[in-house]
Amino acid sequence: MYKYLDELEAKSIYIIREAYNRVDPMCMLWSIGKDSTALLWLVRKAFLGRVPFPLVLLDTGMEMQEVYDFRDNLIKEWDLNCINHMCPPEEDMDQTLPPATRSAMRKTEGLKSLLREHNFKGVIAGIRRDEQGLRAKERVFSPRTIDGNWDFKDQPPEFWDQYKTEFPEGAHLRIHPILHWTELDIWRYTQRENIPCCELYFARKDKKTGKMMRYRSLGEKNITFPVESPASNIEEIIHELETTNTSERAGRSMDKETEDSFERLRAAGYM
């Protein structure tokens, strides 16, 4: 089924193994969403069932309960080593930012304190080019300054699967093994490989309105909203995506607050 996924999968495995060989110590951000869970599956493929580096949840305490439950089950079932890293409180954020962007900034700051604490040289993240215009500009091995800043105007060249993996002391690398996948690819792969995913992605009847609603993208309680959709299983989600024109992050308010909210977040070190 979907033979083309083999090519995407092989490319991701190659990148993951390359990162593991070149970057040490390293961790992987696991947001518990569909992308990073599919990525986790690819990591297990790369290391023949193992996960040879820690997983990290940047926890704001604001994830939905279903997300926490899903995480706890999978940690048990797959015997995972997961660091639950608490992000600094919202009061500490730049108060000039709009509320949802401010909330996302907590994760950015959480990531910085994680790096300080564990001295990680590399962070694997499950972002994709098709999610957002800015992410489309990303490199597979993407350098960050010591403050986590991203210099998108002067990125290193990257071609022929040869990556820039060495950096001066203090900088760190973001590694993006599923950059070349699309939302639809992820769902087709999740279906094909039978990868577990959080129940929030499937449509449920909203008690107030009676409408069928589901989350297309998972984020914190206060800044992520379900969209109207009848898709209540993976097959229906795939069918929906094959025909929709609505963007994936439609339920994410931080992307819309101002024209450049997301850009400001990314430049400051957001995923």
Partner: peptide, 21 residues
């Protein structure tokens, strides 16, 4: 459509390679 960066719109040139499906 492509010029996701504020900076790019202002300079009216494409800074980096972008991928679109």
């Amino acid at each position: 459509v492509l010029d996701a960066f504020q900076a790019e719109r202002d300079q009216a040139v494409t800074i980096d390679s972008t991928q679109i499906w």
